[in-house]
Write a protein that binds this DNA or RNA. Sequence first.
DNA 1: ACTATCCCCTGACGGC
DNA 2: TGCCGTCAGGGGATAG
Length: 278
Amino acid sequence: MPELPEVETIVRGLRDRILHLEFSGVEVCLDKCLRGPRRTLSEWIQGKRICGVERRGKHIILSLGAEGALFVHLGMTGRLRVVPSGSPREKHTHLVFSFRNHPHQLRYVDSRRFGRVFWEKQKKGGWTSLSRLGPEPLEISPSEFVSRVRSRRREIKPLLLDQHFLAGVGNIYADESLHRAGIHPRRKSDSLGARTLSRLHQALQEILKESIRAGGTSVRSYVDSAGALGAFQHGLRVYGREGESCQTCGRTIVREMVGGRSSFYCRRCQRGPSPKRS
DNA sequence: ACTATCCCCTGACGGC
DNA sequence: TGCCGTCAGGGGATAG
């Protein structure tokens, strides 16, 4: 599941490998991953140069300068890989981008098909397709974060996962930061105190930065643009650790659905909003 | 403005 | 060994 740290890792890798290259074409093997007509993409991309590789939330932005940009959201299992043009295509390769005078291709692979690729012409006032995203967790200040959380009335975990509220946090980092901050995933956002939320803000930033430093978390299928695994899965304290002991207090970590998502937490370190549930 | 539910799709996994 | 049913999961759509 590529979340912010994984996407950041991919973006940094792509920056090293495809920045300044000029697209010579794209082969579309699966229309459904495109938001927009394929003819538009192939015509439009032809001869354009990649002048920036950026991230916004979980989106990868290949900037084509004054012309516009190409956006990639990797969904659950999406990958962007830079590989030699002659190398065998892995299963579920949906898009193959080629470059002028360059021996490598950029390939988009996605077994689950939840990812998508879209493009937009440059216009003033930012990208329309990203305009609804919330602030970046690594850029928002503690006080903004606190007031933003307290202005809503929702369970804290689903709120953290809401990309309109905050852009880039997914299931892994929501669970990890709530554990580090000692907050139960079902606590109502407006019931949390300023000190508690400052702790959450700090935990979130620390964990995201630690994971970026480790090259992301490789659970399931994640690899970076060069095919390398991340290492932050070794730093996870609760995610995927149902039945194991909490490293802080020793109590067994539980898994429970919150807002429709598996949530891993420690009942001692993260006290619930009510002692029972039904 | 928020919640619940469905859908997309495939690999992994359990049962037999 | 293999077939089959079940399910997770990001996010968009839709209904309430």
